[in-house]
Simulated assay, not measured.
Amino acid sequence: MTAPIRVLVCDDQALIRTGFATIIDAQPDLEVVGECADGRAAVELARRLRPDVVVMDVRMPVLDGIQATRLLAGAGVAEPVKVLVVTTFNLDEYVYEALRAGAAGFLLKDAPPAQLLQGIRTVAAGAALLDPEVTRQLVGRYAARIRPAEGTPGDVPLAPRELEVLRLIAEGLSNSEIAAALVISQETVKTYVSRILTKLDLRDRVQAVVYAYRRGLVT
């Protein structure tokens, strides 16, 4: 049998933390290996327990989820841990920064339990979790705060079609939506996405969105 996915749950609200842990532990392919209430504890536990996924809140005492994510999954971390950020969209203004810090994706706290569970599995498998509708809302709300800081659009080493796909990714479209918009197959979209990530040396779609906004490709 395949070993269960090991999960660390970090949230300063005991009720939410316990709820997440209960839902996760009820799954035969998932296992909660630890719980904590602040970012510093999350970093310490993650380094000691080496979970497959950390479910991380953003706003916490001692050390917030952004800084904790950067320490666990940011650039230069020797053994990065996959982090799934959970947030209350109307309150957290720093989700974009969490993604820049290295988070593999994010979910809303009021997402259905099935979405949380699938999100953990998705991130554990090495894929990014970037819900299209939430992405559209997020970047739409905070785009004005994201300033181009890494060159100009003309510097992007992508073919015209790849650049078009990157812009659609940054706008929050899923592969199926991109396929429909460009009148191509989903397999072709997957190929383009793979090429984009390889050419730009990006880890996943989350980093692709950040890259596009930092380069001013989407406004």
Rank of each mutant, 00 (worst) to 15 (best):
D204M: 06
V139A: 01
F20R: 01
R147I: 15
F20I: 10
L202Y: 08
T191M: 07
T188V: 14
L217N: 03
R100Y: 00
V58K: 02
A26P: 04
V189P: 09
V139T: 13
L15Q: 12
A149M: 11
L200E: 10
V86E: 11
R147A: 14
V134F: 13
D204Y: 05
A127G: 00
D204I: 04
E35S: 13
S185Y: 07
T135D: 00
A208C: 08
D131Q: 12
A78K: 14
L197G: 05
A68G: 03
Q137D: 00
R203I: 05
D110G: 03
T69W: 11
E97P: 02
D11F: 08
G74V: 08
G119M: 01
P148H: 04
F20N: 07
A26L: 13
G76E: 12
G105A: 07
G102K: 07
I178F: 02
N90E: 15
L91G: 10
L197M: 08
K82L: 05
L99S: 07
Q115G: 00
A128H: 04
V210G: 09
D64P: 08
L84C: 09
R214L: 03
S185P: 08
A143Q: 13
K199N: 05
E93F: 06
I24H: 02
D201C: 07
A212C: 12
P148W: 03
Q67G: 14
A37M: 12
T88V: 15
V95I: 14
I5F: 02
R6Y: 01
L91N: 13
M60R: 12
F89W: 11
V85H: 05
A3N: 14
Q67E: 15
E79A: 14
E133T: 13
E171D: 06
V189G: 10
V54D: 08
E93T: 11
V139E: 02
P4C: 03
G154N: 11
V33N: 08
V55F: 09
Y213K: 08
L158Y: 08
V77A: 07
R100K: 14
L116E: 01
Q118E: 14
P51Y: 11
A125N: 04
R205G: 04
D204W: 07
T152M: 12
I146E: 05
I178K: 04
T88S: 15
A21Y: 06
T18A: 15
I184K: 00
R70T: 01
I5Y: 03
G65R: 04
G151S: 06
L197Y: 04
D201N: 15
G151V: 03
D131H: 05
L138G: 00
A21I: 08
E164W: 02
R145T: 13
L30D: 11
P80A: 06
V123A: 01
V62N: 11
I24F: 03
L91Y: 13
A180Q: 13
L63I: 14
R203G: 02
D11C: 09
A98P: 05
I120C: 03
